[in-house]
Write a protein that binds this DNA or RNA. Structure first.
Lengths: 334, 334
DNA sequence: TGCCGCCCTGACAACGATGTCATATCTAGG
DNA sequence: CCTAGATATGACATCGTTGTCAGGGCGGCA
């Protein structure tokens, strides 16, 4: 900026005024400054400005997701980015791999960079460590998972009802040996889905002790192995509810391998790419990651714009998409 | 920091020393400062420090991709992030949607935030606008697409050979009416794939004027419509080469709709999620986005570490994965 | 003509940190 | 006991920018 000022033959403050479109600069001066800035390829230093600027905004957001190459996270990320772009805000993204240490490290990295707000998919037991930052006024919105140990905005899918809906779909088709394949039980979302599943079984009077509930599945491979193990039984399930997209993919692989994909019903929680092109198509309870991301980002900006209403939980509805796999009837008992 | 210094009863410089693990601070002082920092939940302001710090590094990278919810881009992003994490570097990601204006805006946003390096999938005609930044010493690595108008490092798939390989795969199985469905011709990568396709046809002595070459396809939907149109002909193709993952998905949809998926061969460029679970499985020339991302990030850090060797083009090999769709023989002429 | 007020403009301090340098304290060796 | 040299610490300038404020020029009005 000093160089631009020197080249244009004006003071630095005048350059600052031109860059920021402040009033009370003569047209001639504006032209001189712009020309000088152009020849020097001047790019203002946003962070230096922030140091002094009144609002102290870095126009930066931090986003924490399971992994940036998970399709669900990608869709959330994209929606957040689109909302942020309208405001000239850039987005930091970080993958967690469900590692609480990484969560803390990533949040700390964001905070040191003075992000204006955080959108987090958390994996740690408690997010109490964020309390001081919240008190400082940084908006924090949780997506997909709800916070523990602190109170803040959250945008989540309707996990309980979605899981119940998927389960009901299977039970109404007379399935009784329905297996549950789920993520780690320390994830609240996973617990809610499990509860939706179990409660729905209860409503249909199915004894839950006969129902395989397999948890701690974290990626497609462990889910595949768990599914194969399930069928190594005299009474394998006639239907499967898989509680997460990677788990669903693992189940699909296993059913193919066992050639059980045409006589075992499957409903997955969260949509899976190309699910409609499989044979049978995969019936899912689809979340709406675009909406989750968009609502979360709008929430952050609303807070930044001064919304001081109490922390709210926004529930994004899920939707059952019938594609074939969920409509397979139970095998005849032999 | 001032507050920490006041609370600990020391000078700000001493706090700075403790935060940065500089030597020559007594153990007692260190303890006092750490205690004070903890009670105040002090997070150092990385950007303020950067203003004065000798190396001027923000420990930040900018990544530009087609869209963060494209699976290819997600894999690249993840690989970049993993390399960056080891160095304590955070990553900004931005989606372009093949919009040159967005490219410039995103780069400008990154530059104003003083990223240490850029990893770009470009869409504009020329990246000459980056020349001043390159001169300033900012490492710029292009991924997936090569730069035009400037010289800088690039990490790309072997587009020409990969496309030729896919085409040969079809020609060796006696297909002669092979259609090409490709992305916009102003994308260099797309042109290379087309050329690989056409040259391979030439090597097999196939007259290219009889071969449908359809370009400008940008998403699954336009590709689907183009495929359907292709079959509205007395001599529809017996095989299709689709040059990009979204195009491949569109083709898959169309072939299903037309019930032509069992008698039309298909080889796609770039892998597609769950491609192995379809019937038939989709044969693809797979890129290696993880390796592309990793190599690109390592290149950036090598440059930051002082590597001043001439700009290099790293070619990441592709791999043909046979899954069924590419091995379908030509229909008998009727 | 003289004064008020508006429009432009730049000097200067400040933002939160680090680099430089001076100074105070301590330790060891003669 | 004195001093050189190491260790520990803080005052101050500085990074690139913006907020504050003062001042110069000029037009309008009494």
């Amino acid at each position: 900026m000093r160089q631009v000022a020197a080249l244009a033959g004006v003071g630095v403050k005048t350059v600052s005024r031109v860059i920021n479109n402040e009033p009370n600069v003569s047209a001639a001066t504006i032209a001189k400054v712009i020309a000088a800035a152009r020849t020097l390829d001047y790019q203002p230093d946003l962070h230096a400005g922030n140091l002094r600027r009144a609002d102290g905004r870095t126009r930066t957001l931090g986003l924490l997701v399971s992994s940036v190459d998970n399709p669900f996270a990608g869709a959330v990320h994209r929606a957040v980015e689109d909302v942020a772009l309208e405001r000239g805000v850039s987005v930091f993204a970080s993958s967690l791999d469900d590692d609480p240490d990484r969560e803390q490290a990533a949040v700390s990295a964001f905070l040191r960079r003075r992000v204006d707000g955080l959108i987090l998919t958390t994996v740690s037991e408690s997010q109490a460590y964020l309390a001081p930052e919240l008190r400082r006024g940084t908006p924090v919105v949780f997506v997909d998972r709800e916070p523990a140990g602190i109170t803040s905005d959250a945008v989540v899918s309707d996990n309980y009802d979605g899981a119940a809906l998927a389960t009901r779909h299977l039970l109404e088709r007379e399935h009784r040996r329905v297996a549950y394949l789920g993520d780690k039980a320390n994830i609240r979302t996973a617990r809610e889905r499990r509860q939706g599943f179990l409660d729905e079984l209860g409503r249909f009077g199915v004894a839950t002790r006969d129902v395989p509930v397999i948890e701690g599945l974290h990626d497609a491979e462990t889910a595949r192995l768990a599914t194969i193990a399930l069928f190594d039984s005299p009474t394998p399930p006639t239907a499967i509810f898989s509680s997460q997209n990677l788990v669903t993919i693992g189940v699909i692989h296993a059913l193919r391998e066992l050639d059980r994909h045409r006589d075992t019903a499957l409903v997955g929680f969260d949509d899976v790419p190309l699910a409609d092109m499989l044979e049978p198509g995969i019936t899912v309870v689809a979340q709406n990651p675009q909406q989750i991301g968009r609502v979360a980002a709008e929430r952050v900006f609303a807070r930044l714009d001064g919304d001081a209403s109490p922390a709210a939980r926004t529930i994004i509805p899920t939707r059952l998409i019938e594609r074939g796999s969920g409509e397979i009837p139970p095998r005849q008992e032999g």
